[in-house]
């Protein structure tokens, strides 16, 4: 997500007003860039045109790699690396390998997804993203829109028409 330096922000106190407000702004050709909310608002991704996340696929790939690594590593240890007769079981004791295979699948899937999430969202220990307004983590739903030179008043009016409570212009 690129940092937006020149923007107008509109504030709402209710998620339903936010959704209808954004729709209205979009109808009036306001370029809505992003919205910042204290909790996930259902339907917001549809309104803003955010595609479904690819994280499940990352998880699937991670899990598959984990399962294969777990299984073949055990297989290698018992048939090549360190052959040992344990309780008369065959060297390739597949049922015995299932628990570790499963656990490594889950471990790989979870880590790959979380890292993909952090990387994709530019989040991480000590990461400093621009905080558009501290109120957005409390009780305000903030819409951030871009504007062209000298047209801020126009956008402002349209935001007012869309029912926003406070409107601020930042440069």
């Amino acid at each position: 997500m690129k940092e937006i330096t020149k923007y107008i922000s509109a504030y709402y106190l209710d998620e339903e007003d936010l959704l209808s407000g954004i729709k209205k702004m979009q109808e009036n050709n306001v370029k809505v860039l992003d919205a910042f909310t204290p909790f996930p608002v259902h339907g917001l991704d549809k309104v803003l045109g955010i595609r479904r996340s690819w994280l499940p696929r990352v998880g699937f790939i991670g899990g598959t790699i984990g399962a294969l690594t777990g299984f073949f590593f055990q297989m290698w240890v018992f048939t090549e690396g360190y052959q040992m007769n344990i309780g008369g079981k065959p060297l390739l004791a597949i049922p015995s390998f299932i628990p570790v295979t499963f656990e490594s699948a889950v471990l790989f899937a979870a880590f790959s997804m979380v890292f993909a999430f952090l990387f994709r969202s530019r989040l991480g220990l000590g990461a400093e993203n621009k905080i558009y307004d501290v109120k957005s983590t409390d009780n305000h739903f903030v819409v951030v829109a871009g504007y062209e030179e000298n047209k801020s008043d126009d956008v402002k009016e349209k935001m007012e028409a869309a029912g926003a409570t406070i409107i601020e212009v930042k440069e």
Binding site: M1, F36, T37, F39, V41, L44, I50, L123, G124
Partner: peptide, 14 residues
């Protein structure tokens, strides 16, 4: 982690 509550973040977070 630099959380700002962007709609995109929330979508992925969910």
């Amino acid at each position: 982690f630099g959380w700002v509550g962007s709609a995109r973040h929330w979508s992925r977070h969910e």
